[in-house]
Write a protein that binds this DNA or RNA. Structure first.
Lengths: 198, 198, 198, 198
DNA sequence: CATGAATGAGTTTTCATTCAT
DNA sequence: TATGAATGAAAACTCATTCAT
C-alpha cells in the first residue's frame, strides 16, 4: 500500500509538468510512460483512466503553487509585507514557473473551458482557493487598520489574480519578464493608491 | 479563383469558432468536414494541412475581433471616448464572445505556448496588433493633451490587455460577468487616476 | 458508393465465417484485417465499430443459410417433399457447414445469451424466421390435406429446429455425422407418425 | 493440503457460474478475483493458469448437473419412472439453471468447438457421461422388459440429449419455458410410442 | 504460501493525410 | 478540382501472467 501510494505520487509529480506544458488532452500515455519509465499497465493500475491522472496532476500543480505562495506569505509578518510577497511571488519564481509550463491555473482554465469538462470544477476551486488566500491577507490588513476599511476584499483579490494572470499570459507569449514587471508595478500602484489607508 | 477563394473563406469562417471552442489540436478533420459539409479532399484542396487551416482560422478570428474593436474606436471621436470604447468592448459583446469560445488570442496563446508551435508567431503578432491599437489611442490622447504626457503608452496598452484578458479568464471560469465588470471598473479607475491629465 | 458497398459486402462475406468459427467476442480486429487484407481504418470506414460488423456478419450468415434452405424448399413441389428437403438440408450440406463453423444461429444464440447483448435481438429474429419457414411448409401441407389437420404447426416447427440444432451440437462435439443422422431419422419418424394424415 | 484443497474448491464453486454465464474466454481474472475476493496470486497458487481453472470450473458444473440428474434418477424405482425423472429434470430446475447461465454442456460445447480447444475433450467426456447415464436407464428398462427389446439405447439416449439441448437453446433464446415444454412433450411421446414395449 | 504492483503484448478505436477515380 | 475510400501510425485502455516482498 505504501509502495503503491509512492508510485501514485511519483506518477503525479512526474507528469504534472508534462500536462502543464503540453496540455491535458495533448499529453499522451506514451509521453507519460516515457517520462515515468513505467508501463501503461502500471499507470492504469494507479489511475482508472487518463482523465483521473490529469486531474490529479493538475490538483498537484495547483496545490504546489498555492503552498509555495502561502509559505511566502507566512515568511513575513505584517499584512503589507504579506501582500508584497503575493505580488512578487510570480516574478521571483518566474524562471522555475516558466520551465514547468507557466501557471497551471491559467493553462487548465483555458483548456478546461470548452473541452476538458472534467477539469472544470477542480480549476474553479483552485482559483477560489487562490482568491481566498489573497482576500484573507486583505481582510487581515483591514482588521489591523493598515488597509482601507472600505475595501471590497474579495473583488480586490480577484483583481490581483486577473492582473497576475494577464501578466503571465503576455510574459509567456513574448517570452519576456518585462510584462511580468508591468503587472507587478500596477499591483504596487494599486496597493499604494487603493488599498493602503490614507 | 473567385470560387476557390470563396470556398477557402467559407471554410475559415465556419471552422474559426470550432477551433476557438475546442482548441486547435482537439478539433478533428471529421469535425471540420461535418461543420462545413465539405469533403476532406476539398479541405486539403484549399489548405496544405490542418495546421495551415488552424492558423488561417486563428488569424481570421483575431482579425475579426480587432476589426470590431477598431470599428468601436472609430465610431467615436475623442481619445477618451475611444479609450472608453476599448474598455467596454469585451463587456458589451460578452455574450457573443462567450458563445464562440471566448477571446481567441487568450485561447490560442495558452495552447500555442508549448504545444502548437506553429501558431506562436501569429499569436504574438495578434497581441502586438491589439496593443498597438490601444497604444495609438493613448498616443492620440497624449498628443491632444487630454492624457498625461508622462504616459508610457506601450506599457499602459499592454496593461489594458492584461487586465482585459484576466477579466475574460475569470469571467469564463466562473461563467459570471461580474468579473468582467471588476476588470472594467479597474480600467476606468486607471483612466481617471493614471491616464487623464490632471 | 458502389465501391464502398462492395467493400462493405466483401468485409462481411470474409469475416462471417471467422466470427462463426471463433466467436463474436473472440474474433479480433487483427484477425479481421488479416483475413480481409484491409487496414483497420478501412474496416472502421465501413462499420462504426466491431459490434456493428459482428451483427452484420451474423445477419449475413443467417440469411445465407435461410436462403439456401428456402432454395432447397422451392426446388421441390409437394409439402411432403419440401419437409423432406428441410430435414435433409443440414445433413446434405454438413461438410460445408462444419467448415465455416457450424450453424451460426446455434453459435450466436449461445454467445449472445449472456454476453453479446447486442446480438440477442438479431438472433431471436433469425430463429423466428427459420421457424416460420418450416411452419409455412407445414401449413401448406395441412391446407393441402396431406398433413394432419390437428397439427400445431408453430410448435412442430420449433420442435424441428430443436432436433436439428441438437443434432448439430452433438455432431460437432463428436465430429461425427452419425448424430446428424440420428436427428434426421427422428424427424422422419415424426413426419410419418405425427404429421402425415392417416 | 486440506486448506489449499478448500481454497481450490471454493474458487471453482464460485467461478463456475461466472464462466457459464459470461463464457470461458470472456471471464477475466479481474472478474474472478472480484467474485472470490481473493488475490491473483491466490488464484495462480491454486491453478497454473486461467485455462486450467476454466476447465476445472466446467468439470465442476458438468458434474454438479450429472450428480443432480443421477439423484433424481435414483430417487425413483422403475426404469419408466427414472426415464420420466430424466425428462422432467431440466423443466423442473429451469429457473435455477437459467440463473446460473443455462446448461454448461451446451455453452461449453459451442465455445470449445473452434476456440477453446483445451475444453474440447472434457466437454466430449461430459456429454458421453450424460448419454451413458440415460442409456443405462434405457438398458435397465430393456432388461426389465418394460422397454422394447429392439431399442438402440445409445442412439436413443443421444436423441434425448439432442431434444433437451434443443429445448434449452430455444427456451433461453426466447426466454420462455414454453419451448422447454415442447421438448418434454416430444420426449414423452417418444417414450410412449417408441420406447415402451407394446 | 500469499500478495498485488508491474509488465507488455494485446485490444478497440481515431485521425491526419493520400491518391485513384 | 473534387471526392471519399483507404491508409498506417498513434491513441486509450485491458488483461493474463510474473515476481519481489
Amino acid at each position: 500500500m505504501a509502495k503503491s501510494d509512492n508510485t501514485r505520487l511519483f506518477i503525479i509529480e512526474t507528469t504534472a509538468p508534462l500536462f502543464n506544458v503540453y496540455g491535458y488532452a495533448n499529453t499522451s500515455l506514451a509521453d507519460i510512460t516515457a517520462a515515468t519509465a513505467l508501463s501503461k499497465g502500471s499507470i492504469y493500475g494507479n489511475f482508472t483512466n487518463k482523465d483521473e491522472l490529469a486531474e490529479a496532476a493538475f490538483s498537484y500543480s495547483a496545490k504546489q503553487q498555492n503552498t509555495a505562495l502561502k509559505e511566502a506569505i507566512e515568511s513575513v509578518k505584517t499584512p503589507l509585507d504579506k501582500l508584497n510577497a503575493i505580488v512578487t511571488f510570480f516574478a521571483s519564481n518566474w524562471a522555475a514557473i516558466k520551465k514547468t509550463g507557466g501557471c497551471p491555473l491559467l493553462n487548465a482554465a483555458v483548456e478546461a473551458d470548452d473541452a476538458a469538462e472534467y477539469l472544470k470544477k477542480t480549476v474553479k476551486d483552485s482559483f477560489t482557493s487562490w482568491i481566498n488566500t489573497i482576500a484573507s491577507v486583505l481582510d487581515a490588513g483591514v482588521k489591523a487598520k493598515t488597509f482601507s476599511k472600505d475595501l471590497d476584499t474579495k473583488q480586490t483579490a480577484a483583481l490581483f489574480v486577473m492582473i497576475i494572470e494577464g501578466g503571465v499570459l503576455l510574459a509567456k507569449t513574448y517570452n519576456s519578464n518585462k510584462h511580468m514587471q508591468t503587472a507587478i508595478d500596477q499591483l504596487n500602484h494599486i496597493i499604494k493608491s487603493q488599498i493602503l489607508k490614507k
